[in-house]
Simulated scan of single mutants.
Amino acid sequence: MVRVAMAISLCAGVATPALSDVAKGIEALEAGNVQGAATEFQSAFETGDADGAFYLGRLFEMGLGTEKDMRRAAELYAAAVSKQSALAQNRLGLMHLNGEFVLQDYQRAAELICAAADQGEPNGQFNCGLLYSQGKGVAPDAARAVGYWQEAAKANHVAAINYLGQAYQRGTGIDQDATAAFATFQRTAAAGNPMGLHELAKAYASGRGVDRDLVKAHGYANLAAVRGLDEARLLRDELAGMLDAASLEMAQAFARDWKAVPLDQAG
């Protein structure tokens, strides 16, 4: 194992613009140069980029280039939080939510996670929405939960899009709208997300939010099943018994010819 020397000063302040930065550190990490990445992250933090300490913390959390050390990771996340890193606010908030090497504290978790959300961090927006939907650390507020998921969905956050689709299905925090639910799940389904694919299959099978189409229902259930959803496999097999041979061949051809489109490339 390559040992990473990390002696970051937790009281580092803002200095002149960094010659080294987080983007360079990420590039080094992707190239397998963990030591170089750590140097870039440390330099970035010392010259005013709070996310530098967050990424150093991730190295300790994942045990990349050093022994895994969750307590050190938490210290680095706290250092990054002190400089308003939204990435660190979200991660340290999750640690407080779950009681991982810090006190389990729902109120502190909500403060951190929702601060990240209010800075526009998509994971923070999704997680803050969850907290409002569950009433953990904040008063339950389904409408606010939906609002945060809507913001995260704008950044193509898959889980937020799916939760928003469920909100439309159930009328939780937003007007119930089967057509809007279908359109919402259509976004994640197009990218190959299993839940999105399964929800389209159910919608086509029931005619909820879209015209009933058992061929497409089978095709989407087939695509979701191959991605590991047992419920989708059961639905696919149930639909197979409802289709004649020609329709079943059409459904299988639909699944065979289907291609995923990344969310950021969708029209």
Rank of each mutant, 00 (worst) to 15 (best):
D257H: 09
Q134M: 14
L130K: 03
A152M: 08
D213M: 06
F60P: 04
L92A: 04
E75L: 15
E75N: 12
E121N: 14
A115D: 09
S206L: 15
N127Y: 10
V22W: 05
W258T: 02
A80L: 08
T184L: 01
L94A: 03
A253L: 03
M95W: 15
A181W: 05
Q166I: 13
T172W: 12
L10S: 10
G13E: 11
V102G: 09
A152G: 10
F254H: 03
H218I: 04
A53L: 12
A12N: 07
L92I: 14
G120A: 06
S206R: 13
A15K: 13
G52Q: 04
G207Y: 07
F60G: 00
E61A: 14
S9W: 06
G137E: 04
L214I: 06
L164K: 06
A155C: 02
S85D: 02
A180D: 01
P17V: 14
G192Y: 12
A139F: 11
Q134S: 08
A117V: 13
G99T: 03
N33C: 10
L229G: 05
E231L: 13
G209C: 05
Y204Q: 00
M95H: 10
Q176A: 15
G165K: 05
L29S: 07
L131A: 08
D244G: 14
E111M: 13
L130N: 11
Y148W: 12
Q169R: 11
W149E: 01
A53R: 04
L10H: 06
Q186D: 09
S206K: 13
V215E: 00
A109I: 11
L76F: 15
A15W: 04
G32K: 09
A160G: 04
S43M: 01
R233C: 00
F182I: 00
I174A: 02
N33L: 12
G207E: 01
L56V: 05
L200M: 01
S9N: 15
R236Y: 07
R236W: 05
F126T: 01
V14D: 04
A143M: 07
